[in-house]
Write a protein that binds this DNA or RNA. Structure first.
Lengths: 105, 105
DNA sequence: GATAATTTCTACAATATAGAATTTATCTTT
DNA sequence: AAAGATAAATTCTATATTGTAGAAATTATC
């Protein structure tokens, strides 16, 4: 795509928002909350993988926590490129939305 | 998709912006101008068709004009559903962007 | 051993993107 | 004034990429 797709953008913004708490399931919860819709596991993890492939985020596996349950959390953070991409898309976006009757930003 | 894709959104906003002058080639020119990038013919017409299938725009073929050249223009306008969709996406979008360090809307 | 929280993996559906082909009007030339 | 050249626009089609769902696997505590 020429730009971040919408799910990619939502996930990327959510990683930024969650900061130190940005791991898969948490991201999913936050996206669900902000949109009010159901997001399948894949609809979060697949974009996450692709964002990492494109160099917009970096991840690392954390050590197990004392809470019950499974695999270690994989934490994500934005890279410089990721931040730059967000700024780019915000600029373009504003150009499209500005000055429209009934819809000004 | 859960929401308008980004190209769909750009095309839809541009139709709204161009108002009475919203036909394919004109939409393409405007999108190219606002993004500063190349947009192929298909990358405009395919989303246009899908927007119409989904009921977000309506089109009609105009009569030939006195200028030289080919097929009649097909003009597009937003439907009620299209306008509603834009408002919906704007609301969601704001929720994701608001209150972020370095990126507030 | 059961259960829980998380990630990994995989398949299929939908959308993005490019550009050739087609259509149909005016322009140009004779 | 007819015939071919040219131009503006749309329609069509194929391939690449992205979206979406959920089963399977992993690994911790109860």
């Amino acid at each position: 795509m020429k730009y971040l797709s919408r799910p990619e953008e939502m996930v990327l913004l959510t990683i930024h928002r969650l900061d130190e708490e940005a791991y898969g399931m948490n991201i999913r919860n936050q996206v669900s909350e902000l949109t009010g819709k159901y997001w399948s596991i894949g609809s979060i993890y697949v974009p996450l993988d692709r964002l990492e492939q494109k160099g917009f985020v970096q991840s690392h596996l954390a050590n197990p926590t004392p809470e019950r349950g499974g695999k270690s959390k994989r934490y994500y953070k934005l890279t410089e490129a990721g931040m730059k991409e967000l700024k780019e898309i915000k600029k373009i976006y504003s150009a499209f939305w500005e000055g429209l009757p009934d819809l000004s930003i």
